[in-house]
Write a protein that binds this DNA or RNA. Sequence first.
DNA 1: GGATCCATCTCGACC
DNA 2: GGTCGAGGTGGATCC
Lengths: 231, 231
Amino acid sequence: MRLVIAKCQVDYAGRLTAHLPLATRLIMVKADGSVLVHSDGGSYKPLNWMSPPCTLVVAEPDEEAAEAGVTAVWTVQNSKSDDRLVVSIHEVLHDADHDLGVDPGLVKDGVEAHLQKLLAEQVETFGVGWRLVRREYPTPIGPVDLLCRDDAGVAVAVEVKRRGEIDGVEQLTRYVELLNRDPHLSPVRGVFAAQEIKPQARTLATDRGITCVTVDYDALRGVDDPSTRLF
Amino acid sequence: MRLVIAKCQVDYAGRLTAHLPLATRLIMVKADGSVLVHSDGGSYKPLNWMSPPCTLVVAEPDEEAAEAGVTAVWTVQNSKSDDRLVVSIHEVLHDADHDLGVDPGLVKDGVEAHLQKLLAEQVETFGVGWRLVRREYPTPIGPVDLLCRDDAGVAVAVEVKRRGEIDGVEQLTRYVELLNRDPHLSPVRGVFAAQEIKPQARTLATDRGITCVTVDYDALRGVDDPSTRLF
DNA sequence: GGATCCATCTCGACC
DNA sequence: GGTCGAGGTGGATCC
């Protein structure tokens, strides 16, 4: 990884065009050739960047640019598209290269997929006598997270979210409506399961006859088989 | 901006938990206290990070950690939530501070707002004889991107997206339904215009009688008056 | 300050 | 390789 602190101007042309006026910034060149231009603030997103696969070519500035104070022009060209990042370097304040090696990568826990998996293994969370028909039950407009049968044998479409918001209720509504057209399943009701359900989402769900269930992730994980845990 | 290259292990706890095993990485500490941990690959997203507002506290490792090779523990605590990033430093390979100053910021062109503007100026893109009633036509549930009249004088609500997905169809459906309650406008039909329309969105739109139109941004821009361009 | 919506979204999973 | 949905989404804008 090459780290350059430089006074520079940056121009991007690709899916949009974007321009950064002259200022001092960090230019990070990764081992795969990708380039990130960071300022000393904002969030984790760079001001401008080029994603791999891409190649960096350093060139002399033309006469006009040289007169404007440009000492080098870095052109980062994406290999698969017309996307191009041009960094006009005025002054280099720091330039260092470091060998970082390959990163072993991130281990995550607590995301929706895991929540869905835990609920699939423990459908009795929704009620005694419930059983799972299948996870990711396919429909023409996408898969339903869980399709179950309650203790009375009635089909239930379950939408699992980490945070239950109005979008999720809309999604579940579409699934239930569609599944109800299938005579082998109908009548199908809906359950909206999330760690946290926003009041507006709860209101809309209730209004549509959808049952809301808030689930306790730690409790689900507590009774989970440790061998299936991520860590 | 402080740039540290270090052999480290990183743990995040907050909306999820995430763990990075021991490896050499770049740790970027920005002026606002935010911290980014980058590997030498991937895209612009750090492996792990803490967004501002947050504070960084450096502490000695406890005995157990010290025996494992930890020389310092950086705790980055978010000021508004329980989110916490813990960087266990084993070895510092580089450590430098640079004063970057405040960045003048990014100038963009070519986003959805611009697409909407171009279409408003060229409603004949949708058909001969079409005319624009107004952009951002107000409704109680938000403004419709474009309200037009087609060659037969029938009102058309146009939703403009860069990428047309299912959410946009839902949004347009709500607008059309609402506008159709207005006897001065009814009947109102819908047009879903985007540079790219996802198959599922197209299916849903068609099912609801909404016309899909894919628009060519470059072509629109090509016939655009240069004087109205941003740059 | 909160809600809503776009994004050069990125990223992973699945087909 | 395409498509689709989630995200510690982030960030801007509107109210």
